[in-house]
Computed example of a mutant assay.
Amino acid sequence: MSQVPGEVWEQFAIAVAEMARDLLTQDSTQGTLDRIVEHATVLINGCDEAGILTVRQGEVHALAATSDLVRHADRIQQDLREGPCFDAVTDRQQIYAIEDMREPNDNWPHFTPRLRKLGMGSMMGFLLFTEDDDLGALNVYSRDPNAFDETARRAGWILASHAAVAFSAARTHQQLGHALETRHEIGEAMGILMERYGLTEDAAFKVLKKTSQDRNVKLREIARQVCRTGEKPS
């Protein structure tokens, strides 16, 4: 960073702080992810497009993208099972890069020419992770070869670090919300069974649980059915 004027990094720090506050205002995990990729195009010099993907059991899932071009690139990684962001997630490498897609690439010999045909010149991948979990990878693309210098790499790493924390917090908040909603629905269903069928609290819960197991349906869905119909599940 010493090669870059201090005021530039000061401005970058202010922009990252503003991004962090913006991410905290999002009311959903998807909203947080969408804002992360939008900020990437602003905060990382040379970045024309950005996206976030994750790899679960060998399957690539696109979580956010600034354009259909990025979604196409994600599908190519899935089809070929190769690419810097695919590797970032599966091998836990924090940063991957393709500096010039016009040149042969030994690491990703099939992926690189496919991206070049899409009009991409260079790209970077940053692992999104926290101490407890690997969340995915942030991909940034440029139409120009050799678009990302060391400053852009460091900026991308800083952004990815903040983004991972915001992503994890948003997901945890969403999961907690779902858990509270599920608890409320189960409690309401139990109340209906207790009132209409004279069941004890323990017996009402056992009815819901056994029905869930017998039908191989989530307990929450059984509770919703009881709340909707007011009937004891058969």
Score class of each variant (00 low, 15 high):
18 E>C: 06
19 M>A: 03
19 M>F: 08
20 A>K: 04
21 R>N: 09
21 R>S: 05
22 D>M: 08
24 L>V: 05
24 L>I: 03
27 D>C: 06
27 D>F: 01
28 S>R: 06
31 G>W: 01
34 D>R: 09
36 I>Q: 05
36 I>F: 03
36 I>A: 09
39 H>S: 14
41 T>L: 09
41 T>W: 00
41 T>I: 11
45 N>W: 00
47 C>N: 00
48 D>G: 01
49 E>L: 15
53 L>H: 02
54 T>F: 02
54 T>V: 03
55 V>W: 06
58 G>I: 10
61 H>D: 13
62 A>G: 14
63 L>P: 10
64 A>E: 04
65 A>G: 07
65 A>L: 08
67 S>K: 00
67 S>G: 13
68 D>F: 13
70 V>W: 12
70 V>N: 04
71 R>Q: 12
72 H>F: 04
73 A>R: 02
73 A>N: 02
75 R>T: 05
76 I>T: 09
77 Q>C: 11
80 L>N: 06
81 R>T: 04
81 R>L: 11
81 R>S: 07
85 C>N: 06
86 F>I: 09
91 D>P: 00
91 D>F: 15
92 R>M: 15
93 Q>R: 14
94 Q>L: 15
97 A>C: 03
97 A>K: 02
100 D>E: 09
104 P>V: 07
105 N>Q: 07
109 P>E: 08
109 P>G: 00
111 F>I: 02
112 T>L: 09
112 T>F: 04
